[in-house]
Structure formats: C-alpha cells, structure tokens
Amino acid sequence: MYLTVVSSDDLCHLYDFEYRNKDWFERFVPPREPGYFFFDDFKEHVGEHLAEQKRMKLLMFVVYRDNEIIARVNITNIQQGVAEIDYRVCQRVAGQGLATQAVKSVLDLCRDKYGINRVNAITTDNNVASQSVLLKNDFEFSHRDKDAYVLNGQSVDFVFFQKALGTV
C-alpha cells in the first residue's frame, strides 16, 4: 500500500475508484455533477485539477493497494499556508483506519514539504466516521452550520474543523 501524488498516469484508476464507489460516497457527501461520470468529462475535470496542482493551488493524493486506488485525499484552496482537506475511502476498506492513516500522511507532507501550516475541514453531522478521522488527527471543532444542506432527503448540518500544523 502506498500514497502518491496524482498524475495523469492515475486517470483510469481514479475514474474507476470514483465510479465504483459513487453510491457509497453519496450516502455521506453531496453528489458529483452528472457529467463527472462520463469519462471524457472526468478526464477534462482532472486535467484542470492537474494544472492547478502544478501551480500549487491544490494537491491530490491517492492510496494504491494491489494496483487499485482505495482512497484519495485532496488539499484544496491553498493560500498563504492555509488549505482545506477532503478525503474518500472505498467502501470495501472503510472502517479499517485507512482514512486516518492517509490523512495523517498527507498532513505531514503538507507541513514538511509544502509549507502549509493550517488545514480546515468540513463534514456533515451524519458522517460520524469522517468526524472521527479528523479528531484522531487532532483537528479541533470550529463551528456548525445548522440545516446547511439537504442530503438524501434529510437536512444535515455542516460541521467545520481546523488544525494548526506547526512548523518543521
């Protein structure tokens, strides 16, 4: 199992990861745009993100096991040492601590290699597993937006967290 920065070489594996786990992800997070799951649109979308990655506006990481992506972690909105984090783990490996481990590894890279000193995160109140990943990585609760989104017919709160990464 290994973590790597996303490149164009990962495109097919990344598409497979997103497509295979679409229903699983949509239990906990707002759905992707419908066009996201047409390969040509997906390729264009990821290509735009790869260009942003070259400009250090975002970073995309994936975790591979047996030539298959099983998790991804994105660092977005990088500005003046502050960024946001989001992550996904395929259903097959959920609950095994993989997200906690991947987030920790990416946070260490953010601090040590990319000069990021604070990371913010948003999850929903119904995504207890995501909140657990953040708390295990020493994120602190920041605030809550009540009834911020309707997900699968239910009103959910957005829950905000933050973490200071310190210095090397």
Rank of each mutant, 00 (worst) to 15 (best):
V106G: 03
V62N: 03
Q154T: 03
C110R: 06
S142F: 01
C12N: 15
F61R: 02
Q53R: 06
F141G: 08
F17N: 05
V73T: 12
V73M: 03
D108Y: 03
K22I: 00
C110Q: 11
D9S: 15
F42G: 13
R92F: 01
Q162D: 13
L165W: 13
R27K: 06
V89N: 11
A164F: 04
E26L: 01
L107F: 02
A121V: 08
I116Y: 03
K22C: 04
Y19E: 14
N117W: 02
K163H: 13
T167G: 12
A71F: 00
N137Q: 12
I85R: 00
Y87G: 09
D112C: 12
D66A: 06
A148Y: 15
G153E: 05
H49G: 06
W24H: 09
T124S: 12
D86S: 09
L107S: 03
M1I: 09
F158E: 01
A83P: 10
Y64M: 05
E84T: 02
L135I: 14
Y149K: 03
K54V: 01
F37E: 15
N152F: 07
A71I: 01
V128N: 04
R65D: 13
T124N: 06
V150E: 09
N126R: 02
A51L: 10
N120A: 10
V128G: 03
L59M: 09
Q154E: 07
E140L: 08
N137K: 07
D23P: 00
D138L: 02
C90D: 05
V156W: 12
E44F: 11
Y19S: 15
N126Y: 15
I69D: 01
R55P: 12
K57H: 03
Y36W: 15
Y36M: 11
E84R: 00
K163N: 12
V150Q: 13
S142Q: 04
I69P: 07
Y114T: 09
M56V: 00
Y64W: 10
M56G: 04
M56H: 04
E68R: 01
V93L: 02
F42H: 14
F38K: 03
D112T: 10
Q96E: 09
Y149D: 09
N77Q: 00
I78C: 13
R65I: 07
S130R: 04
K113L: 15
V168M: 10
L14H: 06
R55Y: 09
V133P: 08
Q101N: 13
D157C: 01
Y64F: 13
N74P: 08
R118K: 08
A99H: 01
N21P: 10
K163G: 05
V46E: 10
L14Q: 11
P30T: 08
G47Y: 02
R27P: 10
D86C: 06
T124C: 10
D16E: 11
Q162C: 12
R92H: 02
A148N: 14
K54D: 13
T100Q: 01
S155Y: 14
M1L: 12
K104T: 04
F17V: 05
D9K: 14
